[in-house]
Design a protein around this nucleic acid. Structure first.
Lengths: 194, 194
DNA sequence: CCGGTCGTTGACAGCGCGGTAAAGGCGTCC
DNA sequence: GGACGCCTTTACCGCGCTGTCAACGACCGG
């Protein structure tokens, strides 16, 4: 791979990331060969290794960038909302909306979670997201509006709900976001209440 | 593989299942080769194919039997408890206890979920477990003790919480079950309440 | 129009894997 | 004791994969 790319090179790189993301999500990481990726793009195999040093590196890049975008979306949704419970609600809704709009990335995160090589990256991403949620929970505890339980554990419970409902209703089925989001929010906020 | 085994043959088969489960949980499915499994047992490769027609078949067997045992444990814990909410609580505690005692199987279920070949088996297992939970939720709705929301969706939310807390606190860390179970139960039961 | 960097090609090497098969031991029952 | 069926061994096949390489094109500044 190279560090300085022309406009054309940049585009090729994006094309590779995009088509790889689609194929990974459809068929998984192992079953998708580098040959599959370049063939789908209609280019030679060397192109891949011009932009990435390995298939592994490409997936790591996919994980990093998707996490970055999800995080941006969440922060934009939350803004400067003062009420911590409302921040949690907005975060939940933003996550569901983003995953729905980027199903491929959700699937890729799922499949990377079971591979030792990618678990560290994923763990890092998750820790950041969990800390965010836990902070809102802690604020709510400080305000005395919810029970005083371990904020991090509550954050993990919330993320468990989001992950499961996303997978079952937004990825596998195609339910409207509001329907799912309303139940997720209701379940989680009640779950927090004393 | 053969259908009629002697006592010795039966034992070999169990040994293969057991050592394979350990290796799969540690290193994943793909990275664990058939050669690894038989070497860990100190036998020749042909032994494996005497008892199983493929590596794939062995994993399916692992998924089936573990689901069966988990289910038994849940039903034993629930017994004939009349209160649906209490049944849910007992089910949650039983699941956490079983997964804690059988971490390998939890990991194996996770890794099988991202492989197209095993997803159908897993989906079948999950549907059974979800239907169980959803039935208790429905009973609770009929009793008028919780809000009237989609029971299946609530069941999935509960399973999301269980899965996530199991992974983060019972598999990766080694927290005491009660600590985790108490929070899981509190979060889920409050989440159901109107 | 020319040189150099960026981009691309596709054949090929090398490896590790799942799965096979032929041949050999070992227990058991007549 | 011998014959049969359960169990085990090990060398081997074929495949598909990642990653390499040497040569070739294409764009661009001068």
């Amino acid at each position: 791979m190279r560090d300085h790319l022309t406009a054309r090179g940049h585009e090729r790189r994006e094309q590779l990331l995009s088509v790889a993301a689609t194929l990974f999500a459809e068929r998984g990481y192992h079953p998708t060969s580098v040959a599959d990726i370049v063939t789908a793009l209609g280019v030679g195999k060397g192109v891949f290794y011009w932009y990435f040093s390995s298939k592994e590196e490409l997936l790591v890049e996919l994980l990093r960038s998707s996490h970055h975008e999800l995080r941006k979306r969440q922060q934009a949704a939350i803004g400067d909302e003062p009420d911590p419970l409302r921040r949690i609600e907005l975060g939940i809704r933003a996550s569901l909306a983003w995953f729905r709009a980027h199903r491929d990335y959700f699937s890729i995160i799922q499949l990377a979670a079971t591979d030792e090589r990618f678990a560290p990256v994923l763990r890092g991403n998750e820790d950041v997201a969990l800390a965010d949620t836990a902070r809102h929970v802690k604020d709510a505890v400080a305000d005395g509006v919810i029970a005083d339980l371990d904020p991090l554990m509550l954050a993990r419970a919330i993320h468990g709900v989001i992950g499961r409902l996303t997978r079952d209703y937004l990825i596998e089925r195609d339910e409207p976001i509001e329907l799912v989001a309303d139940l997720a929010v209701a379940f989680c906020l009640r779950g927090l209440n004393p």
